[in-house]
């Protein structure tokens, strides 16, 4: 549905220009800041580029954030895969059963979708520290799963609802049980939905700050906590922080660009059909 209308094209051009300004400016400020010296930073002339570019800021930033990138990757990928997997199982059940039990379950899951971590933060910290899971990646992984599995279940279930039952019925006639049905028939055609669920879960976990801060230990510090830390408390090292942030954004960005296509496809397949 494309138009040849000139006035529409003008509007498009204008909007594109405005958007360019609004979205390029912050990233410009970020890049310029990451290449400055601390003294230039403290002059707060954000727009003015520096003449002697401090590329070593990036080396320094990488040295500082490298361990936390590993931690964040382990935690985010583990949570993403597990949440998508468990969410697929749970979502399938939610979408296929009509029992009163499932109706109650659906409401419980729906409420869980909206809960911020603040609601369970105090017991969660107690629990993770008491069981010593807080000292390992397991603590954060499990914590993130608590809220992301219900979310993934709903996202996956929405997709499963749109799959025609005939496929499963045919397989059922051949004598397949529920698990076989799910893994051999339903899941393979649901990969786009897995991809879109994965994107949503991954970006949420990668960028989460509150829980990562509360449960941080030297061995499990995530990139977001590290980003707050490298700024320092004495002299604000925004140059290092911004260089670190630009390094840190590469992984989710790659994830997004790579899976973005699946995301669109997944949605195209009808996951969000009104």
């Amino acid at each position: 549905m494309r138009t040849r209308d000139l006035s529409t094209k003008l509007i498009v051009l204008l909007v594109t220009l405005v958007l360019t300004g609004v979205y390029v400016l912050p990233i410009y400020v970020m890049v310029v800041t990451s290449l400055k010296t601390p003294v230039e930073i403290s002059q707060r002339a954000y727009l003015i580029p520096t003449r002697n570019l401090q590329f070593q800021n990036y080396a320094e930033a990488f040295r500082l954030v490298y361990p936390s990138l590993i931690n964040s990757s382990i935690i985010s990928f583990a949570v993403t895969l597990l949440a998508a997997f468990f969410g697929g199982l749970g979502g399938y059940y939610l979408s296929r059963s009509r029992s009163p039990f499932v109706r109650v379950l659906f409401i419980l899951v729906g409420v869980a979708l909206y809960l911020p971590y603040q609601v369970i933060l105090i017991p969660l910290v107690q629990f993770m520290a008491k069981t010593r899971m807080a000292l390992t990646h397991m603590g954060l992984i499990l914590s993130y799963l608590i809220l992301n599995v219900p979310l993934a279940s709903v996202l996956m279930g929405t997709f499963f609802l749109s799959i025609p039952r005939e496929l499963e019925e045919a397989a059922q006639v051949d004598g397949a049980n529920r698990l076989q049905l799910f893994f051999r028939v339903v899941s393979p055609i649901s990969l786009p939905a897995y991809a879109s669920t994965a994107i949503i879960v991954f970006t949420q976990v990668w960028n989460e700050f509150l829980l990562a801060l509360t449960l941080s230990t030297p061995r499990t510090t995530t990139i977001q906590v590290k980003l707050a830390e490298v700024k320092g408390s004495f002299v604000a090292l925004y140059n290092i922080q911004m260089a670190s942030a630009l390094i840190g954004v590469l992984i989710p960005l790659a994830f997004f660009l790579f899976l973005g296509r699946y995301f669109i496809r997944g949605v195209l397949a009808g996951a969000l059909k009104g």
């Binding site: 910290v125 107690q126 520290a129």
Partner: peptide, 8 residues
């Protein structure tokens, strides 16, 4: 606080 309240 997390560490202390958990006895670690």
């Amino acid at each position: 606080q997390a560490r202390l309240s958990a006895g670690l």
